[in-house]
């Protein structure tokens, strides 16, 4: 089984910050907007080096989304930065009308997604954002898994003409994807080959899926792990090709099972190739305060939970 080396734990939001700063140098049309969370979003370097293209909006997220939409009219490529909760739920109608329906080239970049925000608790731990964003016609939805992939995705979305929701997080997590990777929007990355079960994971759950595959391998179960960084448009072919071999699937995400990756996969399977599926996701609940590790354990979003679901789904074949 192919294994991956963690080059050191680092936060995905720092990958965003590094990508944004690189874009600042490479693309004069890239502008950045922030709603009073520069440090949290790691936008300091862009602000420092490109002050004329950095816009501090203040605690006014609705205004930020509207300003970003307006900037695209003059040919700018705005990257907005705030927490995932304030990037989506708080400004859903602004995104819907001024960005998505108006077809504006805004990149909505959201940190602190999911439970792993930790101690701040449920007011800040959005678990519904993927669903909210994927329902908007024309919106691309990306949830990256580590620092390197987040940096690559940040660079890639500047080249994509159209609205994008880029979701990443706060905790330091394993960095294991290649530093020089080419990020292809809508193209899944197969991480391990396997024959017994497919594990499709997104965001922080990708590393957990690899850990689960290792444990399953020790138990004699061959797991195929797919890193599905783009939830919309979904790489349906990669999923269908894999389940045609394994005949069962586990989806894993740091999100509610309503509206998340799992539902998108289930829809694809129901339409093309009905297949037993188990969901690693939160079960229609809010989060709470705690350390990221405690929360992932309590809400069943780690390698251990993936192993259990894999063993369960194999029995359903």
């Amino acid at each position: 089984m192919k294994t991956y080396n963690n080059t050191g734990n680092v936060d995905t939001r720092s990958g965003f910050g590094a990508g944004l700063e690189e874009l600042g140098k490479k693309n004069p049309n890239v502008v950045a907007l922030c709603a009073d969370l520069i440090g949290s979003l790691k936008m300091d370097a862009f602000k420092e080096n490109h002050p004329e293209r950095f816009f501090q909006i203040g605690i006014a997220e609705a205004n930020m989304i509207g300003i970003a939409a307006g900037m695209t009219i003059g040919g700018k490529i705005p990257f907005t930065g705030t927490f995932a909760n304030f990037s989506t739920g708080r400004v859903y109608d602004q995104i819907r009308q001024s960005v998505a329906y108006s077809g504006k080239n805004v990149k909505i970049c959201a940190s602190h997604a999911g439970l792993t925000l930790g101690e701040d608790g449920a007011t800040h731990q959005i678990l519904e954002d993927i669903g909210l964003m994927k329902m908007l016609p024309g919106m691309t939805v990306i949830n990256t898994c580590d620092y390197n992939q987040t940096k690559a995705a940040t660079l890639a979305i500047a080249e994509h003409d159209g609205p994008v929701y880029l979701r990443f997080g706060r905790p330091k997590v394993a960095n294991f994807t290649p530093e020089d990777q080419k990020f292809e929007i809508g193209k899944a990355v197969q991480l391990t080959e396997g024959t017994d079960v497919t594990i499709v994971a997104t965001g922080h759950l990708v590393w957990e899926a690899l850990e689960a595959a290792k444990e399953l391998n020790e138990k004699g179960v061959s797991a195929e792990v797919i890193n599905i960084h783009t939830i919309k448009p979904l790489d349906e072919k990669a999923i269908l090709d894999s389940v045609s071999k394994t005949r069962c699937i586990v989806t894993a995400e740091e999100h509610n099972f309503f509206g998340g990756l799992g539902e998108s996969v289930a829809r694809t399977l129901a339409e093309h190739q009905p297949t037993p599926q188990e969901f690693v996701a939160t079960q229609d609940t809010f989060g709470e305060s705690g350390t990221p590790a405690q929360l992932m354990e309590k809400y069943g979003l780690n390698a251990k939970a993936i192993v259990e679901k894999a063993q369960k789904v194999i029995k359903r074949k």
């Binding site: 509207g66 307006g70 040919g75 700018k76 602004q94 001024s98």
Partner: peptide, 17 residues
């Protein structure tokens, strides 16, 4: 309630350009 924000963005882009 969304138009003024959009207009501010368009105004900012004009200044940048």
């Amino acid at each position: 309630g969304q138009g003024l924000s959009v207009a501010i963005g368009a105004a900012a882009a004009k200044k940048l350009n």
